[in-house]
């Protein structure tokens, strides 16, 4: 069973990493710093709901670490790590409350939590509280992106359970 778990988690990490790297090649859509689709989060949402908290955390941590090595740098690692941690905590907290058909809600709130973590790091790094001015726009984009990735993850969970 351990081998099966390791293989499954490694495969999901690989899938998430590929999505992350491909998305990193796309130039930023807007002039607002920090806005992106966050498609790799589809895997995190799927793992958090279909597998379990520990596996989701491992897959997310591995993806963030490897992702910043392959497609980013140390500063992107800080933003991803803070955002990813908050996002995961928010989603795992909502896991007990939500039914499978409401999975997208966790993704939307998780994305907003990600934005909060991200901007907190940005404010701390640049020591500029004025960056908080970007928070409403970031939250809006996060909610839209989170809705999309959440619906994708929900469809994924539904299909994977139909064996």
């Amino acid at each position: 069973m351990q081998t099966k778990r390791l293989t499954r988690d490694a495969m999901l990490t690989g899938v998430a990493l590929i999505i992350f790297i491909v998305e990193a090649q796309i130039p930023p859509l807007t002039s607002v710093p920090g806005i992106k689709m966050g498609l790799a989060n589809i895997i995190t949402v799927y793992a958090a709901f279909a597998i379990g908290p520990a596996d989701a955390a491992l897959i997310l941590a591995a993806r963030i670490l490897l992702g910043s090595v392959v497609a980013g740098n140390l500063s992107t690692l800080m933003y991803s790590a803070a955002g990813g941690l908050l996002c995961l905590l928010a989603m795992l907290g909502l896991r007990r409350v939500l039914s499978e058909s409401q999975l997208w809600v966790a993704s939307v709130i998780g994305a907003a939590a990600h934005n909060l973590g991200q901007i907190a790091v940005a404010v701390a790094v640049t020591r500029t509280p004025a960056l908080l001015a970007y928070l409403p726009v970031l939250l809006m984009s996060g909610m839209i992106a989170g809705l999309f990735t959440g619906l994708c993850a929900q469809a994924l969970v539904k299909r994977m359970s139909r064996k």
């Binding site: 940005a122 790094v125 500029t128 004025a130 001015a133 726009v137």
Partner: peptide, 11 residues
């Protein structure tokens, strides 16, 4: 909203 260059930590 300020101009920000996060990679260079410029605001």
């Amino acid at each position: 909203a300020p101009i920000v260059c996060l990679p260079h930590r410029l605001v």
